[in-house]
């Protein structure tokens, strides 16, 4: 099989996978209120249950 055929086949597989896993499957939804010191800052109707942002996106080296 030629390399460009292999590459195209991988692209097609990736596109098919994208269509399946981004748009379909079990959905876990939650209503989240992010609050600090009993003050509700943000209300989010989300597909995920979150922690604080620094736990989600730990700082890169040197980044504050």
């Amino acid at each position: 099989m030629k390399l460009n055929s292999i590459s195209r086949e991988k692209d097609v597989t990736l596109l098919e996978l994208l269509d399946l896993i981004l748009d379909k499957g079990v959905v876990i939804s939650g209503d989240i209120i992010i609050s600090v010191a009993d003050v509700d800052l943000v209300y989010l109707g989300l597909r995920v249950v979150l922690a604080s942002l620094d736990k989600l996106y730990p700082p890169l080296d040197g980044e504050v």
Partner: peptide, 30 residues
């Protein structure tokens, strides 16, 4: 592309052995 493919490969690694309900990409839990 990398995250999507890994998500798919994780499920491919189990689906032949167990009944599986695949969860949508990008689901995080505490």
């Amino acid at each position: 592309g990398e995250n999507v493919i890994i998500h798919g490969e994780v499920l491919n690694g189990i689906v032949e052995k167990q009944a599986l309900l695949p969860v949508r990409f990008g689901t995080l839990l505490g």
